[in-house]
Nucleic acid binder design. Structure first.
Lengths: 156, 156
DNA sequence: TATTGTTATACTCTATAACTATA
DNA sequence: TATAGTTATAGAGTATAACAATA
């Protein structure tokens, strides 16, 4: 019996039976939106957006990356990174430092204030994820991250 | 020992040790981008976007939904749905049908062409996901969808 | 008063293409 | 010739606020 024939017998389908509900992409997007909405609420209107926080993480953890390096690690275009680095510099969280050996590049150096902002934001984000994901036990949460990393690896 | 003290000993950190890498939100976003890029490649420039396909699914599987109903089920605003329904109507995949009992609403009725387009798109998307997710066995894939649904449920 | 569909508008995220200064 | 950073620009996707028609 085809799907169309089944539909001829009943006008509406149970949501949980829809093929859409079994798609990984659809569930990925919906789950991300749920998490993101709470992230924005926690970080506030003037807080670091997810992408700016990600960039700051790399700058703090791997000091003196170039912008091209950082763009590659974040999986975005060089051009898109400019505004992100501009914002971090305007906040006083990093400096673009000239590199004498190659005058095309500028190393991204975190400031002390940037390190502090990173640690404060990370604490808030960890609280946010712990609260949002309380229904997952430690093993489930680890498994989820593990499976998501496997998908990420395709794109490398 | 704090993170900062650790950093004092080594200039660069192993990527896999970064707190960022353990965050669910970050991994969710990165995994979604990987899947989405292939989705776009498979569906082509004039194919149905993810959100338009999702909307079409509901219209086909639950005929005669109103736009307000559909927006709620998709988790978006009514205003944002207008362009989506416009596109599906322009493609000839659905009709806005007047409802005599309540002249404010218009039921969304799939056309035969809309049902066929839905089934063709679903076949492409299933192939796409099977190919992209070949590194996950059936159990892992089911577990992933299960965990994502748990996160989605928070937002309801 | 409240709801439905709609428009106008703005903001975020992201990509492409072209430029400049260096290498 | 190729690369790093930058600008200009455009296109998704989404939200908020206001409106007319209807309940």
């Amino acid at each position: 019996m085809t799907r169309t024939q089944r539909k001829a017998r009943a006008d509406a389908m149970d949501v949980s039976e829809m093929a859409l509900e079994t798609l990984v992409g659809y569930n990925l997007k919906r789950a991300y939106v749920v998490l993101q909405n709470d992230y924005r609420a926690v970080m506030g209107d003037h807080g670091l957006s997810p992408r700016v926080f990600s960039a700051l993480t790399f700058v703090v953890e791997m000091p003196n990356l170039t912008q091209s390096d950082l763009a590659r690690r974040l999986g975005i275009e060089r051009s898109g990174l400019v505004a992100i680095v501009d914002e971090l510099e305007a906040r006083g969280y990093l400096n673009r430092v000239a590199v004498p050996q190659d005058r095309r590049i500028q190393a991204l150096a975190p400031t002390e204030s940037g390190v502090q902002a990173y640690e404060a934001a990370l604490a808030l984000i960890n609280e946010h994820e712990d609260r949002m994901l309380h229904m997952l036990n430690a093993e489930e949460r680890e498994q989820l991250v593990h499976l998501l990393k496997k998908i990420r690896e395709i794109g490398e």
